[in-house]
Amino acid sequence: MYNTIKFPFYIRLAFMVISLIGITYILCMGKSILIPILMAFLIAVLLLPIVHFLNSKLRFPNVLSSTIAVIIFVSLILGILAFISYEISDIADDFAEIRKNINLFIVDIQRYIRANFHVSLWEQRKYIDDVTQDSFKKGKETIGTTILSITDTILDLTLIPIYTFLILLYRNHFILFLAKLFKKEYHVKLQEILSHIKGSVQSYISGLIFEMIAVSALTCIGLYFIGVKYAILLGIITGILNLIPYVGILVAGVLTILSSLTGTPELSLILGVIIVNIVVQIIDNNILVPLIINTKVQINAFVSIIGIIIGSQIGGIAGMFLAIPILAILKIVFDRIESAEPWGYLMGDNLPKTFIWKSKKVKTE
């Protein structure tokens, strides 16, 4: 017989706070190792149906099935990157025209500021020169950091397919390891948790892919109709960057505006690009995300935003991307553990209409 020790609330709260501090410290110190592994885990879960199909239908051995699935995924990513790099080379040929149109656009803005805000051209240029000099000094200081960051990114891109292959290859080994950690009476609940995690992650990633395709198509159509030269490329870039919460669409908008200057510096085209991006985001946030994403991952907006901010502080862009799947996994685990069920409810988006305290009235003298 095992005796369960029940600690007071303040002791449990202290344990929880200490655990959160320890987990956060481990994530911050080991992010260079953990982030590629977590990314590989998400990709491996996404590729599981392909591996199961090759194993069960075509009778391929597990090693060959895992290898083919990873090769298909890497080939798809390389194909997209090859198309983008080819199209970007065409934009690079128009760089002189872009630079000329940017200068004309800046001159128009300076004249508008001088006419409406009574700031002379000399004062505006002096302010721009001061900002440019400060940025140049800071840029020189961050060159080394940028080079190291690029090196780390290339290393991660190399390791992620390897990690993905190994996770797919040893998936049953890992599941058996988890089974050995718990007693047999908990194996049914463990199987249920793992099954829900697999389904939730697969639905979320597939939903993101569908959302990316939809945003890319809508952006391509909108940019094409307003006369932007590289509408297809900019639409695809917008769809890919839209995967990065909040920040990605802003970067995509800036790139689209700059690329639209290959044809003309007219303000009407730039306003058209801004309107297209706003309309696409309205459709995305009010139709695509509620139908595709929110139905797959039942996390409320408050917890999502906090998780994304924490993820960005720990792991940058990769941390922002991983925040929602990790929160979804935590919610699945919390919902199926009795002592952690309130935390799972806190993370959910099922809002009660009213709440009535069920307590006895206390008489007051």
Rank of each mutant, 00 (worst) to 15 (best):
L166N: 01
L20Y: 06
I5L: 07
V45A: 11
G315N: 01
K229L: 13
Y163M: 01
A217P: 03
G22T: 02
I244K: 03
L13F: 15
D349H: 14
N55P: 01
L223K: 06
I33P: 00
F355T: 11
S268Y: 09
L64I: 15
T295G: 09
A231F: 10
G79P: 04
I175V: 12
Y345L: 03
L351W: 15
I98W: 08
G239A: 00
P36R: 06
I213A: 03
N242Q: 12
K189L: 15
A231S: 08
I91K: 07
Y86T: 15
E87G: 06
S200G: 10
H52C: 11
R125L: 08
D130I: 05
Y25R: 12
V51F: 00
I287G: 02
N101F: 07
L27M: 01
H187N: 15
M1E: 11
P290V: 08
K180G: 05
I68H: 09
I293L: 09
F177D: 12
S85F: 13
M29N: 14
R12I: 04
L64H: 11
F136S: 07
I278P: 04
L168P: 04
L58A: 07
N3Q: 12
I128K: 10
N3M: 10
V362E: 07
L13W: 15
A318D: 05
H118F: 12
V303M: 00
S260N: 06
I143D: 01
L176E: 09
K189E: 12
S195T: 08
G263E: 02
Y170R: 05
I147C: 08
I305G: 07
S260A: 11
G272T: 11
E123A: 05
Y86N: 12
V289P: 01
Y246G: 02
G311P: 03
I282H: 06
A252Y: 05
L20I: 10
G79E: 00
A217Y: 06
Q191C: 06
V119W: 10
V303F: 02
I26Q: 07
I197G: 00
V201R: 01
G348Y: 07
K137E: 14
L38H: 02
K189P: 09
Y112T: 03
K360D: 00
K296H: 14
I309M: 05
I326W: 05
P290M: 10
V362K: 11
F9D: 09
I337G: 05
I150L: 14
N55W: 14
T164F: 06
G307V: 04
D129T: 11
I324N: 01
T67Q: 04
I23H: 06
K229M: 13
E338I: 02
L194V: 08
V45T: 09
P342C: 14
E141G: 05
S85W: 12
I213H: 07
T219C: 03
I150V: 15
N172C: 08
L327N: 02
L346S: 11
Y186W: 07
S75T: 13
I221S: 06
N103H: 14
A82N: 09
G207A: 08
I209Q: 00
L218N: 03
A214M: 10
D93G: 13
H173L: 13
Y2A: 09
